[in-house]
């Protein structure tokens, strides 16, 4: 394997809860408790697990939305967890995040153009709006949307379209690593398939590395090269897609796989 683009060692993110009642003790929740993995350039690693297993916290810690408690995360050889917000800001261009809820992740007051233009100006990729609009139109085309949508507001779009715009906001920066947190979970099944195909295609074409966080094993199988199964803040099993899905070793992985409802039908993929 080539040099990893992201290398995480013993990552811990703990939260202090508010004391319950007047006399209650503060509790420490170990959301992420000693997680290690590598992502190679161009590789898609999925973090899969049930709610509360800490998979989303891993993504949020890597983007500085949460503070890590301990551990190391080497991105291009630099430990990003110890960087100050100001030091980390330029790196945000390279580490981008796709969020779950397409209805909540776009600012309702901004036009699509403003939403997509903002990261360009922040990172100095466009000097003026004329330059920005060219890039915005290109990126909208990339995610399958017409450039005419630029002047509209998020509420004029369906969930699937909004998620495409969310993906455009990420792709416009040409990042090296994309963290997708339940990126297709809120979408209708028929739309989910479109967006999933789009993410897969964009990833293949651009060679971006991806950390794909999801609870849906079907989605994970479809998109990943490797899979890490998380349970209670730890990775209980990690391997290639085929190792995990065809020969699961850990009891929890097996339990997850057997819990999925299956449709008995004649093969219809024709």
């Amino acid at each position: 394997m080539t040099e990893a683009i992201l290398s995480i060692r013993d990552l811990k993110t703990h939260f202090q809860t508010q004391a319950a009642g007047f006399l209650g003790e503060k509790k420490v929740i170990k959301a992420v408790d000693g997680v290690s993995f590598d992502i190679a350039p161009g590789e898609v690693l999925s973090l899969v697990g049930e709610s509360g297993c800490g998979k989303s916290t891993v993504g949020r810690t890597l983007t500085h939305l949460e503070k890590s408690t301990a551990g190391q995360a080497l991105f291009d050889g630099q430990d990003i967890l110890t960087l100050s917000p100001a030091q980390f800001r330029p790196l945000r261009r390279d580490i981008q995040m796709i969020f779950q809820d397409p209805f909540a992740s776009l600012n309702p007051r901004l036009t699509i153009e403003q939403t997509l233009g903002e990261p360009l100006f922040i990172h100095g990729l466009a000097k003026n709006w004329a330059e920005a609009r060219v890039l915005i139109a290109e990126t909208l085309d990339l995610v399958g949307m017409a450039p005419e949508v630029m002047t509209r507001h998020p509420h004029e779009f369906s969930g699937g379209q909004r998620q495409r715009i969310g993906i455009a906001r990420v792709m416009i920066l040409k990042p090296k690593l994309v963290i997708a947190d339940e990126a297709v979970s809120a979408l209708d099944v028929s739309i989910q398939a479109q967006v999933l195909n789009l993410i897969k295609k964009l990833q293949r074409d651009s060679g971006i590395s991806m950390l794909f966080i999801s609870h849906d094993l079907g989605v994970v199988r479809h998109i990943s090269d490797r899979v890490a199964v998380m349970y209670q803040g730890e990775i209980v099993e990690m391997g290639t897609k085929h190792e995990i899905f065809e020969n699961p070793q850990h009891a929890y992985t097996r339990k997850l796989l057997s819990a999925i409802p299956r449709i008995k039908t004649r093969q219809v993929n024709a």
């Binding site: 983007t63 500085h64 939305l65 800001r89 330029p90 945000r92 261009r93 981008q96 995040m97 969020f99 779950q100 809820d101 909540a104 992740s105 776009l106 600012n107 309702p108 901004l110 903002e118 990261p119 922040i122 990172h123 969310g166 906001r169 920066l173």
Partner: peptide, 22 residues
């Protein structure tokens, strides 16, 4: 705590921009 504010943070937006623009 809105997701779109998280998204703006991830874009690298400054405090001022998040407060007054978002």
């Amino acid at each position: 705590n809105e997701v779109f504010v998280d998204a703006a943070v991830c874009s690298g937006a400054s405090h001022r921009s998040i407060l007054f623009r978002h």
